[in-house]
Design a binder for these strands. Structure first.
Length: 545
RNA sequence: GCGCCUGUAGCUCAAUGGAUAGAGCGUCGGACUUCGAAUCCGCAGGUUGCGCGUUCGAAUCGCGCCAGGCGCGCCA
């Protein structure tokens, strides 16, 4: 039994099936208050429409059966339209042994049945350093992968490099301008060029390079766009690794375009009747798949649009055996959802297997004023500079605490205080504290045993902690199913809170050895769950702070 | 104008359609001769943007407003 709520649900469902021959999916929830027991269920949600019994008779029938389950329930009461379940203490504490036995697997499940999932995230254009918007996406994507794997899926992280198209061309031109500038010329970077200083730093080593200097301008642009792009990708990768985010694969748009010829893609779509020509361009009828208008595949000038690469890329993902795709995008791309789905359908895949998660934006706030970040203008906070001032664990925790679709105001001043006031330390301290307790116990020559007398744990807080520990699998389940990464940090903070409070009130290591052993066992379980939770969100669990 | 997201305590944010909407920070007041005070205990703080509806029950679902953000390119 690893998920209490699921277990109670199972019991209630079986009773309903036995007594009334009906299938229902009971809603079981954690009771909001102690007097309502540990869990509760609403009778109205159980009562089937066709049931002939009165509400009271129905309730009493269920209750009488539940009360029989004394090995699990201490009490089962009805209060208005709620059933309140009070768990048997012996049963409750005994579950802790399974927690310890499961160890770092506690909270995991096999729900995903090994289904292959691809999570693509960040995928920022290789035209500049990663900013804090990407940092948020990186934290979220990374944790989604971890959550899915913990839940029995086989999830991989992937980064798509947009290394084809006009933006790279502009990058080359911007670099060339900087090159001229380094030679003392007056320059002006084009309106849609990249103005950040990072480009200058990147190419400064070529100022006296004979080969580069002997090239004509066009050749130099070609050289720089490749060189700078590769250099930026390298920097992005190292920033992400510094942030603790690793990708299974960095896949290049150019490679995708080589694998699937543009002509083949267009021809295939044409054969389905999804392509037409208008105004000298080739169009894809995405509107008939739900897009608000059709999209251009091949422009008047004969070059392709990103719609072609996006279509090919998603086709490729499915062809590599992934059954479910998750794309993590910024809000500025939400308008692309339907066109990519259209492509997925056109290539014979189920659009439901493409899930697009929009991580809401990070708005820069400076002295109370909102400021739009712009990579072209060179106005943004980079991930690297953030990591220079704030501990990586604190950054991750900060971004993960928010609901994915909540907007986030990022105050420049906040970054400085983040390292001091971040709630992550509250949880990490809780972990360090448990470690310290074991160190102290060891000095007193008391070591954890497998079979402590857990019936000695009679403090209300001990019961509260045990129960909360047992909720962890359900929290993981919700976080992973609903892509609610923030549930993990919130859970950890709550567990830390009740543990800190308990620690303050109750002394763990005393001369009473049996009691000490029982309490150490509880502490061990707390430590394990905190560690598992922190690991899930990619935050360290320090033994000392 | 159309589409997506958001609106909850002074601030930053939680809340599986359920019971009296909760935390943290901040303010104020307390607690270390005992396992680490990066901790704990207490006080105060609300018409969940507004209205109507669905429901036994709405912060949550639907519709209409209001406010903010982001999109609406033969750029990505």
């Amino acid at each position: 039994m690893l998920n209490l709520k699921e277990e109670i649900k199972h019991i209630v469902r079986n009773i309903l099936l036995d007594k009334f021959g009906i299938e229902v999916n009971p809603t079981i929830e954690v009771s909001p208050k102690p007097e309502f027991g540990d869990f509760s269920s609403n009778l109205s949600s159980l009562l089937p429409g066709e049931c002939k019994l009165s509400f009271d008779e129905f309730a009493n029938t269920i209750l009488s059966d539940l009360i029989e389950r004394k090995e699990i329930f201490k009490k089962v009461l009805r209060k208005d339209s709620f059933i309140n379940f009070f768990l048997n203490d012996v049963f409750l504490f005994r579950q802790l042994k399974d927690v310890i036995k499961e160890g770092k697997k506690y909270g995991s499940s096999k729900k995903g049945k090994g289904i292959k999932v691809l999570v693509e995230f960040v995928s920022a254009n290789p035209t500049g350093p990663l900013n804090i918007v990407s940092a948020r996406a990186a934290a979220v994507g990374d944790v989604l992968v971890k959550l899915l794997n913990f839940s029995g899926y086989k999830a991989d992280a992937e980064y798509y490099i947009n290394d084809a198209g006009r933006q790279i061309e502009m990058l080359g031109i911007s670099a060339e301008k900087r090159f001229e500038e380094l030679h003392g010329e007056e320059i002006e970077i084009p309106e849609d060029g990249y103005k950040g200083d990072y480009i200058k730093d990147c190419i400064s080593k070529f100022v006296d390079d004979e080969k580069v200097n002997s090239m004509d301008e066009e050749a130099r642009i070609d050289f720089f766009k490749e060189y700078v792009k590769d250099e930026i990708v390298r920097q992005q990768r190292s920033s992400l690794e510094r942030f603790g985010v690793r990708f299974k694969k960095w896949i290049s748009e150019k490679a995708i375009l080589e694998k699937f010829s543009i002509q083949d893609v267009v021809d295939y779509l044409r054969s389905r009747g999804d392509v037409y020509e208008k105004d000298g361009a080739v169009w894809f009828s995405t509107a008939k798949y739900g897009d608000d208008k059709d999209r251009v595949l091949i422009k008047q000038d004969g070059t392709h649009t990103y719609v072609v690469s996006d279509a090919s890329y998603h086709k490729d993902k499915f062809e590599r055996g992934y059954k479910h795709l998750i794309d993590v995008w910024g809000p500025d791309h939400h308008g692309h959802v339907m066109r990519v789905k259209a492509a997925v359908v056109a290539f014979g895949n189920n659009p439901q297997n493409l899930e697009i998660i929009i991580v809401q934006q990070v708005v820069l706030v400076s002295r109370g004023k909102k400021e739009k970040m712009s990579k072209r203008a060179g106005r943004f906070i980079t991930l690297d500079s953030l990591l220079d001032t704030v501990d990586r664990d604190a950054v991750r925790f900060f971004f993960l605490m928010r609901r994915i679709n909540a907007h986030l105001d990022f105050d420049v001043e906040l970054a400085k205080t983040l390292s001091l006031e971040n709630p992550v330390y509250y949880t990490q301290y809780c972990h360090a504290r448990t470690v310290n307790i074991f160190n102290f116990a060891q000095e007193k020559r008391i070591n954890l045993t497998d079979e402590p007398n857990l019936s000695l744990l009679t403090e209300p807080q001990e019961r509260e902690i045990a129960k909360f520990i047992l909720l962890f699998p359900e929290v993981v389940k919700l976080a992973s199913e609903r892509r609610d990464v923030h549930r993990i940090p919130y859970y950890l903070l709550e567990l830390s809170k009740i543990f800190h409070s308990y620690y303050q009130k109750v002394r763990i290591v005393t001369d009473d050895v049996p009691m000490t052993l029982a309490r150490l066992f509880l502490v061990k379980a707390v430590q394990q769950v905190i560690k598992n939770g922190l690991t899930l969100i990619g935050v360290s669990a320090p033994e000392k702070m």
